[in-house]
Design a protein around this nucleic acid. Sequence first.
DNA 1: TGCTCCCGCCAAATC
DNA 2: GATTTGGCGGGAGCA
Length: 355
Amino acid sequence: MDSPASQGYSRKDKSLGVLVANFLILYNRPDVDLIGLDDAAANLGVERRRIYDVVNILESIGLVARSGKNQYSWKGFGAVPRALCELKEEGMKEKYGIVPYVTKSEMVIYEKEREEAFMLTPDDQEFSPSPKLDNKKERTLWLLAQNFVKLFLCSDDDLITFDSATKALLIESQDMNMRTKVRRLYDIANVFSSMKLIEKTHVPETKKPAYRWLGSKTIFENRFLAGSASLCDRNVPKKRAFGTELTNVNAKRNKPGCSEDSKRYGKQNTNIVIKQEQCDVKPDVKNFAYGPSTPAGTCEMNNVGNNIRPRGRLGEIEALSTLYQPQYCNPALISLFEHYHQTFRSCQEEFGRKK
DNA sequence: TGCTCCCGCCAAATC
DNA sequence: GATTTGGCGGGAGCA
């Protein structure tokens, strides 16, 4: 086989990072709705296999969603904050066992919304991809990417060493050997680095390779306008208040059954609804040393035993909410983020008082 | 020399 | 049987 050099290109020219950058240039546009895998491969000049790598990783943070055979729908960067919030919430639950507080009346509303969501028309059902696709073997890259992101979202430190990430992720799937996992981690890190979600760096003391979380803000600063335009200009179903770009909570929901475009919002919307309900939590002094688990990790405090302390990156959700500017977003989305913002503020105040 | 990660084989799932 | 999907690891490029 000819070497890259002899063929006139550098190995780096074909990296996943470059590929994903080109992918975003190609598809992060207002008029993009569906992405055909064959088209993507042809347009980007790579094999299909590489497109699978890219979309699997992008899907892990909600940027795209599988909508059927050979096809993904472009959700845009407007969908990323929610996906990250939900990942953080999941991560916190896994790590600390925090269960969000939802009132009875909130559950009634949720159930009603859920019933509506399941009332699909025959046309809608026709568009729903086969449930058989849900049984596809576990998608390691997708899962690893999500768990990798959770490491940052659920940590006090923005810096995570490559070693610790590998070890932490190895616990999640012990059937995978370290060397294989390391390879996949490099793939994922390359993609996220390319997106400026993380940056590669070193631990100052040990010089060990590490990754720094740059946060969602960076993505939005770089990409938000293009992404949000596509989000907000879309044909959003009016009655689904928060059911536009807010997907990718877990494997089931990420799979085909929940990803077709706007009028097929049915099932995943139930999750969106409950997340919204969870946002509206009240402090429960009995169960929480400090208040609620707020929307998807917006609250910066947790209850680890009696240890009340700030957690995560203060101001991140605030930054996210301010990035949702009215001119780019539909009213429901604005309302949601205002709600987040208020919840965050009350968390801050409450924490200040307790302190 | 060790780290990084492209590349493509191949099996499982799906059509 | 054909096609799609994605796990997996060999081995080459790079610092």
